[in-house]
Amino acid sequence: MRIDKGQISIVCVCIVLGFMLAIQFRSTQDTRASLPFQRVEELSARLHQVESENQELEDEIRELKGLSSSEKNDKINDDILMISGMSALEGPGIILTIDDSGKIAKKENDPNLYLVHDEDILKVVNELRAAGAEAISINGQRLTANSEIRCAGPTISVNNVRSAPPFEIRAIGEKENLMNAINMRGGVADSLKVWGIKLNIQPVDNVWIPAYKASSKYKLAVTSNREEESK
């Protein structure tokens, strides 16, 4: 049987085509099989994180067990004061200033868009907290668990103390993280700068944050020994 040139070329092409088909088929199978692997990686990262947290807590327990009872009480007291905002703190962080827009409001736009509002401050504070800020103050008012950030006419009230723009927000935390949280693309800074609101953020090696100054007496709430709400 005579094999001519045309048939050889057909065989060559078909070999290449079959090769490509098989490779593509195998690659597709591989990617399908490898999807659970990504999940495994994700879970192992989570496990790693939780384990390190666990280690930290165990260290804390060991540390507290090693102390005498009065030292223990002091340490717990210090921690509580720090967390509740009753003691002034210092550490690396950022100082962020926000002021009303310098742009002249266009007639067709709402002039409110050019002013700093309580919502803007809330967004900034929220972003800072999400980025791991350990302590935050607004115009010298320490933010505690009970602090409000509320619109009060042309001013903003924090801890029931009113202040007008410009607002200075101080935060202690990882400088890079805090800066990135505010400056990220499409983040708070971007959305405020559209209206010309002046937002300036500066990393500082030692930020001082004042203590919460108002009274901290609870008038109505009393401590409860119940672990769960009874029916």
């Binding site: 057909i10 065989v11 060559c12 092409v13 078909c14 070999i15 290449v16 085509l17 079959g18 090769f19 490509m20 088909l21 098989a22 490779i23 088929f25 195998r26």
Partner: peptide, 12 residues
């Protein structure tokens, strides 16, 4: 053509 295709797939 069929033989070529089969050889190619085997190779692949």
């Amino acid at each position: 053509a069929v033989i070529g295709l089969l050889i190619g797939m085997l190779l692949g």
